[in-house]
């Protein structure tokens, strides 16, 4: 168990080099993940949510826009398992339709933020110096720009469009990701195995892709699990600005923010969407933590 740091550096390089040669690392990770019950539970729940979202148009008992004004808001019953909203629409159906929007926005916008943020942060942190200064000051500038006006303009110029939604969310969410990745890269770059890799004459791209990024994965995964809920909720703010989904469509974020307004009169309108969101987020976190453990090259030797 007690190894000297020199051998660790060697070891890491050897471990990581196996990525090049084959898929053994991923296979190992998958095997380790399967042993983590909580993570597998998370994976099942998330997959279940995605499948339900995909099948929604064929399996919902009611239409998501059909109103029954005389019925109004009713508590959960045999006819409406999760109750109805103030316009008499079936809440279960609306949550299911909302999941299509929310999950899509959550995953796709996070993917946009993830790819830009990781790339930007890695390059910035790895090269340091002027490159770092330029790239990080760009991040500062983008942070500071007034977001609300930006969204309004985006709408005016391009009209309402789901792609725009991802762009707008991605445009803000990648910034913190980039800063966090850069911070990690800065400290990883100081590790002996990177020095060793440089001495061995490996090309920079290879060092970054094979040695630096994999070692930031743990933090990245955690931040991804934090970004997804953020994105899902940001979507409801954008809907209020006119971007995002428009009625009668809905999303989890919108259902929750309307639910808050009536939480005393019709508590189910807040509770059920919030529970569904929470279950999904908890599962994503279990899955994320499991993935983090499974992908941690050092932990693998335990």
């Amino acid at each position: 168990m007690t190894q000297s740091s020199e051998t660790t550096a060697e070891q890491s390089i050897i471990d990581l080099d196996s990525v090049e040669s084959g898929t053994s690392l991923w296979e190992d990770a998958w095997n380790r993940l399967q042993q983590n019950k909580l993570a597998m539970f998370g994976l099942y729940v998330v997959s279940f949510m995605i499948i339900i979202a995909l099948l929604t148009p064929w399996i919902t008992p009611y239409s998501y826009f059909e109103q029954d004004l005389d019925l109004g808001a009713t508590a959960p019953s045999a006819a409406h398992w999760l109750g109805t909203d103030t316009l008499g629409r079936d809440l279960l159906t609306r949550i299911m339709y909302g999941s299509r929007i929310s999950l899509m926005v959550g995953f796709l916008a996070t993917a946009v933020a993830l790819s830009i943020g990781v790339l930007w942060g890695t390059v910035s942190g790895y090269f340091g110096g002027r490159v770092d200064a330029f790239m990080m000051r760009t991040v500062d500038i983008l942070y500071a720009l007034p977001f609300t006006i930006f969204i309004i303009l985006l709408m005016v110029v391009f009209g309402r469009n789901i792609l725009l939604l991802f762009m707008a969310i991605g445009a803000v969410e990648w910034l913190t990701m980039a800063r966090i990745v850069r911070g990690q890269v800065l400290s990883i770059r100081q590790q002996e195995y990177i020095d060793a890799a440089i001495t061995m004459g490996l090309p920079k791209r290879q060092i970054m892709l094979r040695h630096v990024i994999p070692n930031t994965l743990g933090t990245i995964i955690i931040y991804v699990t934090l970004t997804i809920p953020n994105v899902i909720l940001l979507e409801s703010f954008l809907s209020f600005l006119g971007l995002g989904v428009q009625p009668p469509q809905s999303s989890w974020g919108l259902l929750i923010s309307y639910g808050v307004e009536t939480m005393e009169e019709y508590p189910w309108l807040l509770i059920f969407p919030a529970v569904v969101l929470s279950v999904t987020l908890f599962s994503l976190n279990f899955l994320g933590d499991g993935l983090r453990d499974a992908l941690d090259p050092k932990a693998s030797r335990d």
Binding site: M1, T2, Q3, S5, T8, I180, G218, T219, I221, I222, Y223, T225, L226, N285, R292, D296, K298, A299, D302
Partner: peptide
Amino acid sequence: RLSRGGMLEILSQDFIRT
């Protein structure tokens, strides 16, 4: 969440084991 992740990363490093 961030500090848990950061700590786990560090706690598995060799100097901590030492």
